[in-house]
Amino acid sequence: MGKQDTEMLKGVLEGIVLSILATRPAYGYEITSELRDRGFADIVEGTIYAVLLRIEQKGLVDVEKVPSEKGPPRKVYSLNAQGRDQLGEFWGSWNSLADRMTHIQQEHSEGNN
């Protein structure tokens, strides 16, 4: 992933994590694995844990400590009502931005014909 991709991803990673948690509760490693499976191979666990800490501090998720067969208990995150509201706002902003970017791209393409 190039530097520009990385910078763009930083701006939307919180929304992506909230989207994953909207489908099911998960812990950090599961989220990282799912992102890698979806083509975000360069994402490291530390980045995801920073996002999880941030959304936990904002009150967007509920956290449950679940015993682990290997090591200390895992923190399992689930999206709460406030998180669902935030996710709705994220997708609204995303769609608005994507529409504007598509319009700009189309204008640029038409101008080069």
Results as ranks from 00 to 15, higher is better:
residue 1 M to N: 12
residue 1 M to H: 13
residue 1 M to D: 12
residue 2 G to Q: 13
residue 2 G to C: 04
residue 5 D to P: 00
residue 6 T to M: 15
residue 8 M to A: 02
residue 10 K to S: 09
residue 10 K to H: 09
residue 10 K to Y: 08
residue 12 V to T: 09
residue 13 L to C: 02
residue 14 E to Q: 07
residue 14 E to N: 03
residue 17 V to D: 03
residue 18 L to F: 09
residue 19 S to A: 11
residue 21 L to A: 02
residue 21 L to S: 02
residue 23 T to Y: 05
residue 23 T to I: 01
residue 27 Y to W: 12
residue 28 G to V: 03
residue 30 E to D: 10
residue 31 I to E: 06
residue 32 T to L: 07
residue 32 T to H: 00
residue 33 S to P: 02
residue 35 L to N: 07
residue 35 L to V: 08
residue 35 L to K: 08
residue 35 L to M: 15
residue 36 R to I: 15
residue 38 R to A: 13
residue 39 G to S: 05
residue 39 G to D: 06
residue 40 F to Y: 14
residue 40 F to D: 10
residue 40 F to Q: 10
residue 40 F to H: 08
residue 41 A to M: 00
residue 44 V to P: 07
residue 45 E to G: 15
residue 46 G to Q: 04
residue 50 A to F: 13
residue 52 L to R: 02
residue 52 L to I: 03
residue 52 L to S: 04
residue 53 L to W: 11
residue 54 R to S: 06
residue 55 I to S: 00
residue 56 E to M: 00
residue 57 Q to R: 08
residue 60 L to Q: 01
residue 61 V to S: 10
residue 63 V to Q: 07
residue 63 V to E: 08
residue 63 V to P: 03
residue 64 E to Y: 14
residue 64 E to D: 12
residue 65 K to T: 07
residue 65 K to G: 01
residue 66 V to F: 11
residue 68 S to Y: 08
residue 68 S to W: 10
residue 69 E to L: 12
residue 72 P to C: 05
residue 72 P to A: 15
residue 73 P to Y: 13
residue 73 P to N: 13
residue 73 P to K: 14
residue 74 R to D: 07
residue 74 R to T: 06
residue 75 K to W: 03
residue 78 S to A: 12
residue 79 L to T: 05
residue 83 G to Y: 02
residue 87 L to W: 08
residue 87 L to A: 07
residue 88 G to P: 00
residue 89 E to H: 09
residue 89 E to W: 04
residue 90 F to M: 10
residue 90 F to G: 09
residue 91 W to M: 12
residue 92 G to W: 10
residue 92 G to P: 02
residue 99 D to Y: 08
residue 100 R to E: 14
residue 102 T to N: 12
residue 102 T to M: 10
residue 102 T to A: 11
residue 103 H to Y: 07
residue 103 H to E: 11
residue 105 Q to H: 06
residue 106 Q to W: 04
residue 106 Q to M: 11
residue 107 E to K: 13
residue 107 E to A: 12
residue 108 H to M: 05
residue 109 S to W: 08
residue 109 S to N: 07
residue 111 G to H: 14
residue 112 N to R: 13
residue 112 N to G: 03
residue 112 N to Q: 13
